[in-house]
Design a protein around this nucleic acid. Structure first.
Lengths: 228, 228
DNA sequence: CGGACTTTTGATTGACATCAAAACGCGTGG
DNA sequence: CCACGCGTTTTGATGTCAATCAAAAGTCCG
């Protein structure tokens, strides 16, 4: 019921997935932990899909690269989130650590077996639902929102997810933000600069921000008021 | 392994979901059939989510409307496809029949119960995976492809899904195509006209087409060659 | 045949991309 | 501690693709 839901239209991510992992699920057998440095990939698109993952620490980005080098970042995953479930025999995306990260790996083969016999374990189903909601949300942004609307909505979502009012981290680079929002790095910068000038946000450093005028930022995200 | 997969990067929809519905699933209990005229809605975004659906005949579009009237059509569902699973207590999209359609309704409450106790029934899980793949595919189109690339890719996907070479139906209007591809109706028309002029496609009527030069159309979709 | 809706074509504008360069931040080594 | 170098971010000038505004042509049905 947060105000942002009006911006994005869709709502999602009801609960913390980590807390639900406790009970002994069949698919949990044979897991392992993997540590990644910033920029390291978990897998590249086309690799055989042996595992799906849960983020323990850090942030992972999931993206595709087109032949001309353009990238589309499908999603960012933080603490507790599960991804890589929806793959076929090969991975459809590249998964890369943005910052130093740790993930738990689940053998997909075990999940696959469980799905066929007893049905898909609840946590994985919920993670998939969450991913679909976010993908749909981004389709609206990419298809029907202006550059500044996308950037404003992106910042509000980051702030909402981190839940640390007055100080939100941006672990990803400007290029990553641009590749996620379907914009260029210059357009992202210009939007941010304009929001700073208008007093909607403040940015102590390039990688962290605080929302100064929530109502104003929301109006930009909704397209009611426009920057410039 | 079709050539189109290179265009879109992602692959999906491995099997026919209808055929898998045979075995007695718990969630199948209490289903009903509903008929819809063209333009009728199954539900509007915000309605309590009581059912999810399988298309028996016709085509259903699932979309969101922004406050300024802009629409984003998330997906089109045809024969055999399942949708509306990923909803919360309320529907996140509006589902509307494009042509006269028939759907089977599954009580979400029963699916929810099954998911919690035995895990999610396989068919629903697979439908969800399929929806996610398509959403990711469209994110790439919306975020990183030019207008003509999107239209070309859209036509190829339609043709591939219908599998009727030399004669593919377009049940949706130009406005629907535009709202799905994040374009305006005029831009969609101009792209189609240009493809006709270049001999890549032919259109006996506005609502059906045939691919005349598959390689050429694919090049446009991949951005290798550009129209005009 | 007339009326209403859908599709197509044309002229102009505008938002974002592209090209280019300056400013900033940060780690390394003198 | 400061100078240097390199990657990232920001600002500026110009170009372009698709949106917008406007109207004609086509299609369907009573």
């Amino acid at each position: 019921m947060a105000s942002l839901s009006k911006v994005y239209v869709l709502r999602h991510r009801s609960g913390d997935e980590t807390s639900q992992m406790a009970d002994g699920d069949a698919a949990l057998a044979g897991t392992c932990i993997k540590r990644l440095k910033a920029g390291e990939t978990l897998h590249v698109e086309g690799d055989p899909a042996l595992f799906c993952y849960q983020v323990i620490g850090g942030v992972i980005k999931e993206y595709n690269t087109l032949e001309d080098g353009r990238r589309q970042i499908a999603d960012f995953y933080g603490m507790g989130e599960i991804f890589g479930i929806s793959e076929h025999d090969v991975h459809l995306h590249t998964a890369e650590a943005i910052s130093e990260s740790t993930v738990r790996c689940f053998p997909r083969e075990a999940l696959e077996r469980a799905s066929s016999t007893q049905g898909t374990p609840r946590v994985f189903f919920d993670a998939l639902v969450s991913s679909l909601h976010r993908a749909r949300e981004r389709m609206i942004m990419l298809g029907r929102m202006s550059a500044s609307q996308r950037v404003a909505a992106f910042l509000m979502r980051r702030a909402e997810e981190q839940g640390t009012p007055g100080h939100t981290e941006l672990p990803m680079s400007r290029q990553d933000i641009a590749d996620h929002l379907g914009l260029t790095i210059e357009t992202v910068c210009r939007s941010l600069t304009e929001m700073k000038k208008q007093g909607l946000i403040s940015m102590p450093t390039a990688r962290q921000f605080a929302i100064a005028d929530k109502g104003g930022l929301e109006e930009v995200a909704r397209g009611v008021s426009r920057l410039v």
